[in-house]
Design a protein around this nucleic acid. Sequence first.
DNA 1: TCGAAGTATGAAAGCATTTTCAGTCTAACA
DNA 2: TGTTAGACTGAAAATGCTTTCATACTTCGA
Lengths: 335, 335
Amino acid sequence: MPSRKKPTIYDVAKSSGVSISTISRVLNSPDKVNPETHRRVMSSIDKLGFVPKAEARARAMRHANRIGVITPLFTAPSFVQRLRGVASALSKANYELVIYPVDSVEQLQGYISSIPIMQNVDGLIIMSLAIEDQDARRLHDNGMQTVLIEYSHPQLNSIEIDDAIGGQLAARHIIGKGHRQVAFLGEIESPEKYAIHPVKSRLQGFKNTLDEAGISLLKKYIKSAPYMQENSQRAALELLSMDQPPTAIFAAADIQAISIMKVARQLKLRIPDDLAVVGFDDIDIAEYMDLTTIRQYLDQSGRLAAEILLSHLADSDRALQHIKIPLTLIERQTA
Amino acid sequence: MPSRKKPTIYDVAKSSGVSISTISRVLNSPDKVNPETHRRVMSSIDKLGFVPKAEARARAMRHANRIGVITPLFTAPSFVQRLRGVASALSKANYELVIYPVDSVEQLQGYISSIPIMQNVDGLIIMSLAIEDQDARRLHDNGMQTVLIEYSHPQLNSIEIDDAIGGQLAARHIIGKGHRQVAFLGEIESPEKYAIHPVKSRLQGFKNTLDEAGISLLKKYIKSAPYMQENSQRAALELLSMDQPPTAIFAAADIQAISIMKVARQLKLRIPDDLAVVGFDDIDIAEYMDLTTIRQYLDQSGRLAAEILLSHLADSDRALQHIKIPLTLIERQTA
DNA sequence: TCGAAGTATGAAAGCATTTTCAGTCTAACA
DNA sequence: TGTTAGACTGAAAATGCTTTCATACTTCGA
């Protein structure tokens, strides 16, 4: 009895003895339908070869149930961990997650200019990327709900980290442990034009707090090196093989702290006795390494971004939110 | 004058003083409308920036250069690293990446049954998840190009890891180093019904190779523990505080190997002298830790999956591919 | 044992268009 | 001058879905 016509959800409903609402639910929010019903409906769908008409769907759908995340291409573990927060919040709310990985300015510009027009996504989360005023305005004017993470703009929601405070926390801790010979390692100058510069602020906060305590952060003790292991290790080696090596190093990222630890091990330095190390981020691995670090609640910041976005989608004239997430020093074994 | 909401044909109708039917006609059969009316309507359309929603979306939905990845919710670093491979291959090819994170059977079942029917992605990559025969058939029958990673099915493309060989490599290496007291740590029994069981194969290959060399892997030296740090550490502690502790441990995942190293450090055991550790995966952090491990080329397997998918999308009657990725032992400092 | 708090479902109200049908108006023809 | 065939147009129905709302049916404490 295969009818010549394309089957509609009414046909499926009849064939499986439920209402059309249930058919729709099976396809769109399967978690809301009884497994047994689901099974029955799916088997009818398969039997009839039902495919929902995209046009009818588009018409009836108020929103796309899809949000986009623009992010640097999985470079650092910290991005991933934030993404995990985003993903878990979205999947709970039955939203699809579209990733737009960025590895050049042009790409970023391309996404930002085409996304609002395409209307493929209901909202946008932009992670750790600097966006230009004009792009921010475009997003705003097109009514694209957006949350910026680690960056801010007056016309868009934002979640920021107080990097300077992070530097301060690290400095206080290191001072408290009695260190006087203190160093800093981080990727101070990022080569990418679209990148943000949290490391500078971390250094600033660190340096100022040391200054206030009468400890000077000598220029030779400030090393800039890219995240990559080789670079970080080389920089660490330079620091640690000086005539008067530092007794404590604050690394602007946990992975760099781990590089320092590796070099220290090779030099037979005991941590924290010969060398104290403080990281920044508190990525998963930090706990495995017993690394003392500044926690920036990565998962939670991602989750929060998603939640803010969803709440603004639900109620579009909600006031803009500019949130600063607090930082905490997590004391473990390395400092 | 950017209006908040997208204009509909009602807005155009109002603005140009005609009925919606006429707007529709202007768009679909212009010959049936008075030239003067046509002109007026067109000018309203331009002014409002009206775009027929359904069509725009239907077009956007249809062949959007979009591929989906179904993956366990970022639990282990190894998933993330594979994902990175996928992302980089796709972004090069100008494809959008939609993530479907799974954390329950129901969710997996939901995605996997609706995606092939909804057809809102062009292709699908399913990472490290077991799928049922019926679902595989549905994917195939609905013409959804699919690549399975760490699992296989005769009707779908697949990329597999030879886990047993991995165990064998680890065993050979450990034997070569002269160890006789050998242990295994891994999450042998996964609690999730949808999970796959590569750990069993790793253990199997490990055990068999030891057997062949006349070394028996005693039952008490086989520990099953979840990936989570606390569990792995407890298991490691149990192993290492036995009367006759093992002198070498093969961990079925790098993060578990790292947990072992942490416990060993606490017990003041020197690695590799007192205890040799071999991991599995070769995640990024393994290099930082100088961990000897079995490399499974995570990035590359992800990239390969994406490439296979793209080539099948370009030419849909390409033959199915079932690929086994080779493993390599990477010797570093821990064994 | 009762009420409270969920689950699972169907009826019905959208959604943004297209299409049908019927009416008005004009122009042309007898 | 009365008819009438077009040419335009609008009201309303149809389209194939999604979503809201109400309701019946389960648990689940206490």
